[in-house]
């Protein structure tokens, strides 16, 4: 009985210690990436390549999802607002919810599953096939050559993708609200422009997207670099990237929102 309790407690202890150890390792890893980034930026075409793979190739999914999210917001928002006779506020509702919340969060979640998982799988496979060790042997720092460009590629891509997502969403809301349902287009844009503040709404959305970009980029490269060098290890690391990134986005979103929109 007492032995059983001790085993359970020891299990909990091991998990907590491991989790904290991994967190510390990730933080040290982040510092190492930052320190190797100078070389990365000098060879900018490496970063360009990664922007292509994580940013440009995510364009279709981000643009299409943005459009559909905006259109759904248009339909749902109109249905609710017309009960209170204020369907002109549709533009405000669509734009506010996209710019402040849905843009950064939904685009971040999509980006984590579309690009983050790919980065983890690629780095994990490079590790499993000992390519990273080989680079080390040739005196090429794998962090500067492989990890840092992927990190910056993802961190730069996400804010741009989020801006495009929000833009497409607003346009989708406009298509449904003003073109399809027939809310006055002037009121749609006019009310939106008076209600939305550049600093409070748009800049805060950009800040969110930058933070999410860094978080997803770090989690993706870290999980790849830290994966077990086996096929199973790579698959588990990929899963962990998506799960951890999603949780990190939602958690960070809550923290950032509570700071930005408290008053």
């Amino acid at each position: 009985m007492l032995d059983g309790t001790a085993i359970i407690l020891r299990n909990i202890g091991t998990r907590v210690v491991n989790a904290i150890w991994r967190l510390g390792y990730a933080a040290r890893f982040f510092v190492r990436i930052m320190m190797s980034s100078g070389t990365g930026f000098r060879r900018f075409n490496l970063i360009l390549r990664e922007i292509y793979f994580s940013g440009v190739l995510s364009l279709i999914i981000i643009l299409v999802s943005g459009l559909f999210v905006g259109m759904v917001l248009g339909l749902q928002g109109y249905d609710t607002l017309q009960r209170y006779g204020s369907e002109e506020a549709l533009g405000v509702l669509v734009a506010l919810s996209l710019v402040r919340e849905l843009g950064p969060v939904v685009a971040g979640l999509l980006f984590a599953s579309r690009a983050g998982s790919a980065i983890t799988a690629e780095i994990g496979l490079m590790k499993a096939t000992e390519q990273l060790d080989a680079m080390d042997m040739m005196a090429v720092d794998p962090i500067a050559r492989v990890i840092a460009p992927r990190f910056w590629g993802a961190a730069i891509s996400l804010p741009l993708l989020v801006a495009m997502f929000s833009t497409m969403g607003v346009y989708g809301g406009f298509l449904i609200g003003a073109v399809h349902i027939g809310v006055d287009a002037g009121a749609f844009w006019g009310q939106m422009q008076t209600a939305i503040d550049f600093q409070r709404d748009i800049l805060n959305g950009v800040v969110k997207s930058v933070v999410f970009g860094f978080a997803i980029a770090l989690i993706s490269v870290f999980e790849g670099y830290d994966s077990d060098a086996t096929a199973e290890g790579v698959s588990r690391a990929t899963t962990r990237t998506v799960v951890t990134s999603s949780l990190a986005i939602l958690g960070l979103d809550f923290i950032l929102t509570s700071f930005m929109f408290r008053g």
Binding site: L160, A163, T167, V170, Q193, D197, F198, I202
Partner: peptide
């Protein structure tokens, strides 16, 4: 991406 940001700033945020 930059065009989208400008759109948000000018057209949405005025």
């Amino acid at each position: 991406g930059i065009a989208a940001l400008v759109f948000l700033a000018l057209k949405v945020g005025n």
